[in-house]
Simulated scan of single mutants.
Amino acid sequence: MTLTDAIGNAHHAIDPGAPAPRIVSLVPSITELLCDLGLAAWLVGRTGFCIHPADSVRAIAKVGGTKDVNIDKIRKLAPTHLIVNIDENVKPTVDQLAQFIPHVIVTHPLTPRDNLALYRLLGRIFGATPRAETLCSAFEQEYAALTQIPQAVAQTVLYCIWKDPWMSVSQDTYIANMLALIGWRVWVAAPKGGDAVPAPRYPSFSWSDALVHEIDQVLLSTEPYRFTDTHLDALERQIGKPVRLVDGEMLSWYGSRAIAGLRYLRELASAA
């Protein structure tokens, strides 16, 4: 069976009689997914941000961050498969790694339901289809439960992922599409002067009275910047609008974490 990744590269299921694959994952949420698919024993490398599940990843070698990987260390691990993500990893680095890693699997989920194809892609490549289908069933159950709750009041929210400079997310990101499931639309700055250049996916912004007027609330994510209640209190005093601290892993991690993420969305909607 030929399987296709996010950029159209064809992959094949591993041969059951071949030596065990050696996988390096440069995506924290994918590392967690691989472990939940029962493939932890085949993972030989991960980033320092791949922290879940803690008991499983502890024995897997760290190879740097998502963008500043140690090429030589990965080479010594002799991986057969590399798993990367378009948003989280740097293409020149991936191109370097592709020179000596035979199979590079590129991921790029943009909507919550893209997780179903992700589960099945990795499950079929690595011979874990039954576990992948179990995850698909769990996802569908949580998705159905989310659609059955009363819709939250439609809001425009400013989702903050960084400070100094302040940064947010665009409407074509996984985070924005997660929030859209409960009727929340992420704020983005209007294009300047009809500029045809596409807006960045993770734009920077400056606080202003005009911006504050356009939003209903601010969501401060716990990752990648570690926003805390201290930031929440200070910003709420500054702008005079509701500010909420949200679990960044639940809203930005795809893979198996997305199942819990859908439950988390239900909690957000009920508390709105």
Results as ranks from 00 to 15, higher is better:
Thr134Met: 09
Thr173Leu: 05
Thr173Gly: 08
Cys160Ile: 11
Glu133Gln: 14
Ile149Glu: 05
Ile149Lys: 09
Glu140Trp: 02
Tyr119Phe: 15
Thr107Cys: 08
Leu118Gln: 14
Ala145Phe: 07
Ile161Asp: 02
Tyr159Gly: 02
Gln141Gly: 08
Leu158Ile: 11
Arg124Ser: 15
Leu122Tyr: 07
Lys163Leu: 06
Thr134Tyr: 06
Glu140Leu: 11
Leu158Cys: 10
Arg120Asp: 14
Arg113Thr: 13
Ala128Gly: 09
Ser170Asp: 12
Gln148Leu: 13
Thr134Asp: 14
Pro109His: 05
Val106Leu: 01
Tyr159Trp: 04
Lys163Met: 08
Ile125Met: 01
Gly127Pro: 10
Ala138Gly: 01
Lys163Pro: 00
Ala117Val: 00
Arg120Leu: 15
Gln171Asp: 13
Asp164Met: 09
Ala128Asn: 10
Val106Tyr: 11
Gln151Trp: 01
Pro112Arg: 00
Arg113Cys: 06
Val169Glu: 11
Leu158Val: 13
Lys163Gln: 14
Thr147Met: 14
Thr134Asn: 12
Ala128Thr: 06
Glu140Phe: 01
Tyr143Asn: 11
Thr134Glu: 14
Ala128Val: 09
Ala144Phe: 06
Ile161Asn: 02
Leu122Asp: 05
Pro109Phe: 02
Leu118Met: 15
Phe139Gln: 00
Ser170Met: 01
Tyr119Lys: 04
Leu122Arg: 00
Ile149Met: 12
Trp162Val: 13
Val153Gln: 15
Thr147Ala: 15
Met167His: 07
Phe126Ile: 09
Thr134Val: 10
Val153Tyr: 03
Arg113Gln: 14
Ala145Gly: 12
Leu116Ile: 15
Ile125Tyr: 03
Ala128Tyr: 04
Gln151Leu: 10
Arg131Trp: 09
Asp172Cys: 03
Ala154Lys: 12
Ser137Met: 09
Phe139Val: 00
Gly123Val: 07
Arg131Asp: 08
Asp114Thr: 05
Ala132Leu: 02
Lys163Cys: 02
Pro112Thr: 00
Met167Thr: 05
Leu116His: 06
Gln171Gly: 09
Gly127Arg: 02
Val169Ile: 15
Leu110Trp: 01
Asp172Phe: 03
Ile161Leu: 09
Trp166Glu: 04
Pro165His: 05
Leu118Arg: 08
Arg120Glu: 14
Leu122Lys: 01
Thr173Trp: 04
Gly123Met: 07
Pro112Lys: 00
Asp172His: 12
Ala138Ser: 01
Phe126Pro: 10
Thr129Val: 13
Val157Gly: 03
Leu146Asn: 06
Val153Ile: 12
Glu142Ala: 15
Gln148Trp: 03
Gly123Asp: 07
Arg120Tyr: 10
Leu116Met: 04
Gln171Ser: 11
Met167Leu: 07
Tyr119His: 12
Thr156Val: 15
Tyr143Asp: 15
Ser137Arg: 14
Val153Phe: 04
Leu121Asn: 03
Cys160Val: 14
Ser170Lys: 01
Thr129Pro: 00
Arg131Lys: 15
Ala154Gln: 11
Ser137Lys: 14
Asp114Tyr: 04
Glu133Ser: 01
Leu158Gln: 05
Thr111Cys: 04
Arg113Trp: 08
Ala144Tyr: 04
Pro165Ser: 05
Asp172Ser: 11
Asn115Pro: 03
Val169Met: 09
Arg131His: 10
Leu121Trp: 07
Thr156Arg: 13
His108Pro: 02
Leu122Ser: 05
Gly127Lys: 04
Glu140Ile: 03
Pro109Asn: 06
Glu140Asn: 06
Glu133His: 09
Cys160Pro: 01
